[in-house]
Lab assay of single mutants.
Amino acid sequence: EAHAAIDTFTKYLDIDEDFATVLVEEGFSTLEELAYVPMKELLEIEGLDEPTVEALRERAKNALATIAQ
């Protein structure tokens, strides 16, 4: 499951495998979680700032909209 989540994140969020791995290690496994989890939870991840989190959430929401079509 972790590998599938990493693949999904790299494909749809335009991030590298290392960043995707950090997200999975922090407990995220779906685009929905990244799109809708409280921003505070993402900001608790070391190295993430508000602009990065906002961009990540926007990419996740856009990916979900694209997949739904």
Rank of each mutant, 00 (worst) to 15 (best):
Asp14Phe: 11
Asp18Gly: 13
Ala65Ser: 09
Ala5Thr: 08
Arg59Asn: 09
Glu54Val: 14
Gln69Thr: 09
Thr30Val: 03
Leu64Pro: 00
Ala68Pro: 06
Leu31Thr: 00
Thr66Asn: 12
Ser29His: 14
Phe19Arg: 04
Ile67Met: 09
Asp49Met: 04
Ile67Thr: 05
Phe9Arg: 00
Ala5Val: 11
Ala55Leu: 13
Leu42Gln: 03
Phe28Pro: 01
Val22Phe: 15
Ala68Met: 11
Gly47Leu: 05
Leu13Arg: 00
Val53Thr: 04
Asp7Asn: 13
Asp16Tyr: 03
Arg59Lys: 14
Thr52Ala: 12
Glu26Asp: 04
Thr10Ile: 15
Lys11Pro: 00
Thr21Cys: 08
Ala55Lys: 10
Glu46Tyr: 12
Ala35Thr: 06
Glu50Asn: 07
Glu26Lys: 15
Tyr12Phe: 09
Ile67Pro: 03
Ala20Met: 02
Leu42Asn: 03
Thr8Cys: 10
Asp49Glu: 05
Arg57Ser: 06
Lys61Cys: 05
Ala60Asp: 01
Leu42His: 03
Glu54Gln: 13
Glu54Thr: 14
Asp7Phe: 11
Thr8Ile: 14
Gly27Trp: 02
Leu48Thr: 05
Glu50Thr: 09
Glu58Trp: 07
Glu33Ser: 14
Ala63Met: 05
Gln69Lys: 05
Pro51Gln: 14
Val37Tyr: 09
Glu33Val: 09
Ala55Val: 09
Thr10Ser: 06
Ala65Lys: 11
Asp16Cys: 06
Asp49Phe: 04
Glu58Phe: 06
Ala35Glu: 03
Leu64Glu: 01
Glu54Ala: 12
Phe9Tyr: 04
Asp18His: 15
Pro51Cys: 11
Tyr12Val: 05
Gln69Met: 07
Glu50Val: 14
Phe9Ala: 00
Glu26Tyr: 15
Leu48Phe: 09
Leu56Glu: 01
Asp14Val: 05
Lys11His: 09
Leu64Ala: 02
Thr52Phe: 13
Thr52Arg: 08
Glu58Leu: 09
Leu43His: 05
Glu44Phe: 10
Lys40Val: 10
Val22Cys: 07
Phe19Lys: 05
His3Lys: 15
Phe28Cys: 02
Leu43Ser: 05
Val24Arg: 06
Leu13Pro: 00
Leu13Trp: 01
Leu64Phe: 03
Ala5Phe: 07
Thr30Ser: 10
Lys61Ser: 06
Val22Gly: 04
His3Tyr: 10
Glu32Met: 10
Ile6Gly: 02
Pro51His: 14
Ile15Gly: 01
Thr21Leu: 14
Ala68Thr: 09
Ser29Gly: 07
Glu33Thr: 08
Tyr36Leu: 08
Leu34Val: 09
Leu64Ile: 10
Glu44Thr: 14
Ala63Trp: 05
Arg57Asn: 04
Thr30Ala: 04
Glu46Thr: 15
Asp18Ile: 13
Glu1Tyr: 10
Ile67Tyr: 05
Leu56Gln: 00
Gly27Val: 01
Leu43Ile: 07
Leu48Asp: 01
Pro51Asp: 13
Gln69Asp: 10
Tyr36Asp: 07
Thr8Asp: 06
Pro51Val: 13
Asp7Met: 15
Ala63Lys: 03
Ala55Asn: 09
Val22Leu: 15
Glu26Ala: 15
Thr30Trp: 03
Val24Glu: 02
Ile15Ser: 01
Leu31Gly: 00
Leu13Val: 02
Leu42Phe: 07
Phe19Gly: 02
Leu13Asp: 02
Ala60Pro: 02
Glu58Met: 08
Ala63Asn: 02
Ala55Arg: 12
Ile67Gly: 05
Ile15Asp: 00
Pro51Trp: 13
Lys61Ile: 11
Val24Tyr: 14
Thr66Cys: 08
Glu58Tyr: 06
Leu31Trp: 02
Asp7Ala: 15
Glu44Val: 12
Val24Lys: 03
Val24Leu: 08
Asp14Gly: 15
Ala55Thr: 08
Val24Ser: 03
Glu17Trp: 14
Ala35Trp: 06
Glu26Phe: 15
Thr66Lys: 08
Glu50Tyr: 13
Glu33Arg: 11
Thr66Glu: 12
Leu64Tyr: 03
Leu42Gly: 04
Ala20Gln: 01
Ala4Cys: 09
Asp49Gln: 04
Leu34Asp: 01
Asp14Gln: 12
Glu25Thr: 13
Ala2Trp: 15
Phe19Ser: 04
Leu42Tyr: 04
Val24Ala: 08
Thr21Ala: 13
Thr30Phe: 04
Lys40Thr: 12
Ile67Ser: 05
Leu56Gly: 00
Leu56Arg: 00
Tyr12Glu: 04
Gly47Asp: 04
Leu48Lys: 02
Glu44Asp: 10
Asp18Ser: 13
Met39Asp: 06
Lys40Leu: 10
Glu17Asn: 10
Ile67Arg: 05
Ala2Arg: 15
Tyr12Gln: 03
Thr21Tyr: 11
Leu23Met: 02
Tyr36Met: 10
Ala4Ser: 11
Glu54His: 11
Leu43Glu: 04
Asn62Thr: 13
Leu34His: 01
Ile45Trp: 04
Phe28Asn: 01
Thr21Pro: 00
Ala35Lys: 02
Arg57Ala: 06
Ala2His: 13
Glu26His: 15
Lys61Thr: 07
Lys61Leu: 13
Lys40Gln: 13
Glu26Asn: 15
Glu1Gly: 12
Glu50Trp: 13
Ala65Trp: 11
Ile6Gln: 04
Ala35Asp: 01
Ala65Arg: 09
Pro51Ala: 15
His3Ala: 14
Glu44Cys: 08
Ala65Cys: 08
Asn62Ala: 14
Ala5Ser: 09
Leu48Arg: 03
Asn62Cys: 09
Ser29Asn: 11
Ala5Tyr: 06
Pro38Lys: 06
Leu42Glu: 02
Ile15Phe: 02
Ala2Tyr: 15
Asp7Ser: 13
Glu17Arg: 15
Ala4Leu: 10
Thr21Met: 14
Leu64Cys: 03
Ala2Phe: 14
Ile6Leu: 07
Glu58Cys: 06
Ala5Ile: 14
Glu33Gln: 15
Leu43Arg: 05
Thr66His: 12
Leu48Ala: 04
Glu25Ile: 11
Tyr12Ile: 04
Ala2Glu: 10
Ala20Tyr: 02
Met39Pro: 07
Ile6Trp: 04
His3Gln: 15
Lys11Thr: 09
Ile15Asn: 01
Ala20Trp: 02
Ala55Trp: 13
Asn62Phe: 10
Ala5Gln: 06
Ala4Asn: 12
Glu44Asn: 14
Tyr12Lys: 02
Pro51Glu: 14
Gly47Gln: 05
Leu48Met: 13
Glu54Cys: 09
Thr52Met: 12
Phe19Pro: 00
Ala5Arg: 05
Thr30Asp: 04
Lys40Arg: 11
Gly27Phe: 03
Thr8Val: 11
Val22Ala: 11
Asp18Ala: 14
Gly47Trp: 10
Leu13Ser: 00
Thr30Arg: 08
Gly27Asn: 02
Asp18Tyr: 13
Thr8Leu: 15
Thr30His: 04
Val22Gln: 12
Ile45Arg: 05
Gly47Ile: 05
Ala20Val: 02
Glu54Leu: 11
Asp49Gly: 04
Gln69Gly: 11
Ile45Met: 05
Pro38Trp: 05
Lys40Pro: 07
Ile45Glu: 01
Ala63His: 06
Ala5His: 07
Glu32Pro: 03
Glu1Ser: 13
Glu1Pro: 12
Tyr12Trp: 15
Glu50Lys: 11
Ser29Trp: 13
Ala20Pro: 01
Tyr12Leu: 07
Asp16Lys: 07
Arg59Trp: 07
Ala5Cys: 04
Glu58Gly: 04
Leu31Pro: 01
Tyr12Thr: 03
Phe19Cys: 08
Phe28Ala: 01
Ala20Ser: 03
Asp14Ser: 08
Glu25Pro: 01
Thr10Asn: 04
Leu48Gly: 02
Ala60Cys: 05
Asp18Leu: 10
Leu34Glu: 00
Leu43Lys: 05
Leu43Gly: 04
Ala35Pro: 02
Ile6Tyr: 04
Leu56Asp: 01
Glu54Lys: 14
His3Val: 11
Asp16Ser: 14
Ala63Asp: 00
Ala65Phe: 08
Ser29Ile: 12
Leu43Tyr: 07
Phe19Val: 10
His3Arg: 15
Ala20Ile: 03
Val24Asn: 03
Leu56Met: 05
Leu31Gln: 00
Thr30Gln: 05
Thr52Leu: 10
Ala35Gln: 04
Pro51Ile: 12
Ser29Ala: 09
Val37Glu: 06
Arg57Tyr: 03
Val37Trp: 11
Leu23Gln: 00
Glu25His: 14
Phe28Lys: 01
Leu23Tyr: 01
Arg57His: 06
Val22His: 11
Asp49Pro: 03
Leu43Asn: 04
Pro51Met: 13
Ile67Phe: 07
Gly27Asp: 02
Ala68Arg: 06
Leu13Cys: 03
Phe28Gln: 01
Tyr12Met: 06
Lys11Asp: 03
Lys61Asn: 06
Lys40His: 14
Asp16Glu: 08
Ile67Gln: 07
Val37Phe: 10
Phe9Asp: 00
Ala68Gly: 09
Thr66Leu: 15
Ile67Lys: 06
Thr8Phe: 10
Gly47Asn: 05
Glu54Asn: 12
Leu42Ile: 07
Lys61Pro: 02
Ala55Gln: 09
Gly47Lys: 05
Glu17Thr: 10
Ala2Leu: 12
Tyr36Ile: 08
Glu25Tyr: 13
Gln69Glu: 09
Thr10Leu: 13
Ala55Ile: 11
Ile6Ala: 04
Leu42Asp: 02
Leu48Trp: 06
Tyr36Trp: 10
Asp49Ile: 04
Asp16Arg: 05
Glu41Lys: 12
Ile45Ser: 02
Gly47Tyr: 06
Lys61Gly: 04
Thr30Pro: 00
Glu41Ala: 12
Thr8Asn: 09
Ser29Cys: 08
Gly47Glu: 04
Val22Glu: 04
Gly27Pro: 01
Ala68Phe: 07
Lys61Glu: 07
Thr8Glu: 06
Leu43Ala: 05
Val22Trp: 14
Leu43Asp: 03
Tyr12Gly: 02
Glu54Trp: 10
Ile15Thr: 01
Ala35His: 02
Leu48Asn: 01
Thr52Gly: 08
Ala35Leu: 14
Phe28His: 03
Glu25Phe: 11
Ala2Lys: 14
Asp7Trp: 12
Ile45Lys: 05
Gly27Gln: 01
Asn62Met: 12
Lys40Ser: 13
Phe9Ser: 00
Asp18Thr: 11
Glu33Leu: 11
Pro38His: 08
Ser29Asp: 06
Ala2Ile: 13
Glu25Gly: 11
